[in-house]
């Protein structure tokens, strides 16, 4: 995929440098850790499309992430489908779920919107606990990564890594494009002043719904990838903790920025891995960091860095 023309020319070297970094990093850092960061970075970027550009706080995104992971895992393991088909099925499920949940939730605003998405996601969690296909507490384990397009053996960690990286980069460029498209302009207008957008003749509900469906589709893509990377789809993916975690990642990194959610996701994943030895204290540390961030830099890491980056013409 070529860089979209909406990326100003001065951003291109920066983006290419980041991609270059992504290419060489697995030689220095444990690739599974990087893949985890990329999956959650994609999840947070999808979530950010809603929170950062439409101003909608969904508290149910684990539903799309988790159920997509389940279906991909099931399709790869039980039906023996190739990874690309399994992923597409997962994304399709997340898209359909997103359309239904979005259609119900966008009628309300603010906290009511968040509560409706949470309630529906909890329904999804309940089904996951009860349904035989998810294997309850055990989850779907030992998911085969398979051969991509029947050619590339994804059981090789490096091959898997480059596949995840490619999907991640393409998705982020696409989301960047959406945000800067004519559609994205209307989304930002709705975020800034919804009644005014209505008075200019925009049916805001439709725009919100499309944004919601796009967001849930990419959340699903992240979940599908994650289930192949860890060869596991479990209740943790579909629980409300996961919905909360993506909020945390996005806010830490910087809501409404393209880089922010990715930075936030890597930060949270790094904290979890680094402090894994001390058990549940990780949550305390995460909480402290979150409080400090909220107090010191409200607009998140990238939000604080943005003026500096902007002077260099890097972020728009």
């Amino acid at each position: 995929m070529t860089l979209s023309p909406s990326v100003p020319s001065r951003q291109k070297p920066f983006i290419l440098a980041l991609i270059g970094l992504g290419l060489v990093l697995p030689f220095a850092v444990y690739p599974v850790f990087l893949m985890k960061g990329l999956c959650f970075g994609l999840f947070a970027a999808a979530f950010n499309l809603l929170l950062g550009y439409v101003g909608l706080l969904s508290f149910g995104h684990a539903m799309f992430f988790g159920w997509s992971a389940y279906l991909t895992a099931y399709a790869a393991k039980e039906w023996g489908l190739t990874p690309e088909i399994a992923i597409l099925l997962g994304v399709a499920l997340a898209t359909v779920l997103g359309a239904v949940v979005g259609w119900l939730a966008i009628r309300r605003q603010g906290i009511y919107f968040a509560m409706i998405t949470l309630a529906l996601a909890q329904l999804g969690f309940f089904v996951a606990v009860q349904a035989p296909m998810t294997h309850g507490e055990d989850g779907i384990q030992g998911v085969p990564r398979g051969h991509l397009f029947g050619l590339f053996d994804l059981s090789d960690t490096m091959t898997m890594y480059y596949f995840v990286l490619a999907v991640f980069v393409a998705s982020l460029l696409f989301l960047h494009r959406v945000v800067n498209s004519p559609f994205g302009q209307v989304l930002k207008a709705i975020r800034d002043n919804e009644p005014r957008a209505v008075s200019l003749g925009y049916e805001v509900g439709r725009y919100k719904l499309i944004a919601f469906v796009l967001s849930s589709a990419f959340a699903g893509l992240a979940g599908s990838l994650k289930s192949l990377v860890f060869q596991l789809a479990s209740l943790a993916d579909v629980s409300w903790h996961m919905s909360g975690e993506v909020v945390l990642m996005t806010l830490l990194g910087g809501v409404g920025t393209v880089l922010g959610p990715m930075v936030g996701a890597f930060l949270v994943v790094a904290i979890q891995d680094f402090f894994a030895g001390i058990g549940s204290w990780v949550i305390i540390i995460q909480g402290v960091i979150f409080v400090v961030c909220v107090l010191l830099f409200r607009s998140g890491m990238i939000g604080v860095l943005a003026p500096w980056l902007k002077r260099r013409g890097i972020t728009g």
Binding site: S6, V178, S181, P182, Q185, V186, L200, G201, R206
Partner: peptide, 22 residues
């Protein structure tokens, strides 16, 4: 002002299109 103008352009649902067209 462009947000108001763009509605008549009929591209406002095209999330895949570059903002350059505005």
């Amino acid at each position: 002002v462009r947000v108001a103008l763009q509605r008549k352009q009929g591209k406002s649902f095209q999330f895949w299109r570059s903002g350059e067209c505005l």
